[in-house]
Design a protein around this nucleic acid. Sequence first.
DNA 1: CATGAATGAGTATTCATTCAT
DNA 2: AATGAATGAATACTCATTCAT
Lengths: 220, 220, 220, 220
Amino acid sequence: MEGGKFHRKTFDRIDPERRAMILRVAMTEFASKGFAATGINDLARKAGISIGSLYSYFASKEDLYLAVIDMGSDTLERELSEIDPSAGFFSCLEALVRKARHAADRYPELNQIYLDSTTQGLSALAARLSNRLEAVTAKLYRRLFAAGQASGELRPDIDPGYAAFCLDNLIVMLQFSYSSDYYRDRMRIMVGVGDGEEVDEDKLVSCVLAMARGAFGAFR
Amino acid sequence: MEGGKFHRKTFDRIDPERRAMILRVAMTEFASKGFAATGINDLARKAGISIGSLYSYFASKEDLYLAVIDMGSDTLERELSEIDPSAGFFSCLEALVRKARHAADRYPELNQIYLDSTTQGLSALAARLSNRLEAVTAKLYRRLFAAGQASGELRPDIDPGYAAFCLDNLIVMLQFSYSSDYYRDRMRIMVGVGDGEEVDEDKLVSCVLAMARGAFGAFR
Amino acid sequence: MEGGKFHRKTFDRIDPERRAMILRVAMTEFASKGFAATGINDLARKAGISIGSLYSYFASKEDLYLAVIDMGSDTLERELSEIDPSAGFFSCLEALVRKARHAADRYPELNQIYLDSTTQGLSALAARLSNRLEAVTAKLYRRLFAAGQASGELRPDIDPGYAAFCLDNLIVMLQFSYSSDYYRDRMRIMVGVGDGEEVDEDKLVSCVLAMARGAFGAFR
Amino acid sequence: MEGGKFHRKTFDRIDPERRAMILRVAMTEFASKGFAATGINDLARKAGISIGSLYSYFASKEDLYLAVIDMGSDTLERELSEIDPSAGFFSCLEALVRKARHAADRYPELNQIYLDSTTQGLSALAARLSNRLEAVTAKLYRRLFAAGQASGELRPDIDPGYAAFCLDNLIVMLQFSYSSDYYRDRMRIMVGVGDGEEVDEDKLVSCVLAMARGAFGAFR
DNA sequence: CATGAATGAGTATTCATTCAT
DNA sequence: AATGAATGAATACTCATTCAT
């Protein structure tokens, strides 16, 4: 599935390194400061390009922001495509949770921007993305649940949509909790770890899997 | 538990109606536009007070924002205090989920602002709140889990912190899904309801409860 | 000679201590921050009185400022009245220089405000003072020079006005040099004292007197 | 000696006429209203440039102010460099006094701003200038006194620093007296000229020179 | 294609003054 | 007489975007 096109033709024609650099700097800036507080002039300077160039690549600050998110969606899609539904539901789910956990480490900025973009103030902006990300994820869950119920691994009476929604909620929050300062603090408080301690990642993953298995797993 | 004090003394002294009006307008503005995009001058005009007055009540835009969130924490605390831990774990949990669901309808703006405040760009700001909200919630979960394990309603081998964290993740996302445009769209896509359809709230609550029961409930 | 009246009648009627406190705080504030940068509300708070009271004593910030300067003129007048012209010109001049030197220490704020008020930006304001201070000083010089020339201590061919102007220039700058940060630094640089050293006050006074004696003293 | 750099690089790159115009307008505004009462937006409008441009040339109002003073220091330095110490002390001194007198006419605004900047309220600001102006002047005096004492024109027992300080005090006040409204009035009162009359400039210069000659000149 | 100077509406915040209590 | 809440024009400064070179 092709992402929206938020950049101008010129952006396709320039040196890939320059292209990557611009997106990387934009990602870092938007991630740490948010859409509204990020300055385009400052961003251009940090990327080592002129304001004029930036505006020849992107029609507006908004478009640049969306382009960054779109790139993030590509990344997600690539990661998800590695999941093989034929490997069994819970095996896939565990892979998914682990992937989410690692994505938070590898692309914290993408997660932070994603969080930023879900904000009510940016809803008009986000509408232009037409929920591409969730569409991709939803599709994967559909296939996983279909296969799981077909194979008898999952109970036949559960509604895949509602189950997928709840599962993904856990996964999204897990990702936020490992990539944003706010949710990290929240996690530590909820889990109840002290100042020196660390949250036990395996316990977390087990808990998520246990919830899925308990609610959706067959014969119990 | 007393909230931080983000307003000036003068704010305590004015007409309660005026006070409520200011907070209400501020809540609406911050909720719909986000912290950065909300203008103080505009806000004052909408509240029908002068800029000077607003600044005599709050030292800065930041303080006003925090005051609004703090008021929201009061509201949450009040709601949570109605939960009676002696009523049994799953009964309480269901009450909690229902409460969250209704809070999203009754105070959508509070939820939107909460979401906004968890954004990375506002992490410095949010730090001043010292996670009061999560502390309150965490405390409730502690009591619920302790009572549940004591009564034998819950398995003795689960770690209450991790369980609470996962449960609250579900509840938080439920609230976002019913109060923010972005997460509502996401929910509809994940659940897979069509254009005319509505998400079935009871199914959602059941799903959350089933996940909790399956993972944490005793003898199964 | 009566000073202008820059306060309202109410100010005459209040407790003298309150009166003195207000003027003292005003003096300190205006001296350190200058007219424009001094805030009336802040000043009132520091003086422990209400803004309303302050405005019942003085019609405007401007009037308060002028009242402070006027009080300073009283002080100067009192000091100058101690000079006895019959004691001989150079003896009086030395007394005058010493007085100036000590006034800089005792009333640094008055000097700083005086300097501030001579600024071009405040010329309209200062016009309301009608140069009361200089009139007082000029009158003293007239008497000193008249007595000095009558007694033969001073050369008969010097023009008292020009001589007085030059002498007073030296004295004014001496006062600035001991009461304002800027002119203190300037003095140290011009005199050429090092970091640990102090400017030798006696040398300074001698130098001023030598210049007067050399130019205006009879036979030599 | 190079002045501090208070402008941004962009200011070096623009049309010299534009540059001069901006500084000229800034000089006029700051001179007549003082630092605090001068508005940047107003100033930009008067200079015929946009606020944004002004801020692309100078980082702050403070910097613009200092840039104007710095330009004034250049002017002073240029003027002082015309004095030839080998021409004899008193000849140089007379040239210096005449120069000061004419500088007051040619650059009244610079003098007014200089006066403004010596104000206690601007001492923090002025500190950034590190007394460049006085350093230049002091250096010239050092050379003049050294030459004068070497040639026997001056008494060997006078301390050049103290003498220079007193002399420069006379010169500074002379300049103020011919460039600021306040000090002009003061001069007229001290000298004692009537309403139609003018202060006799030659008498003034003679008086200053007489004071120098009487105190510092050899044999007499 | 690239540049970066120029723009000016918009921002949060201050402050002298008024006036109802 | 004393208070201090209320006012709103004014302030210094920012920033997304344009466009001439």
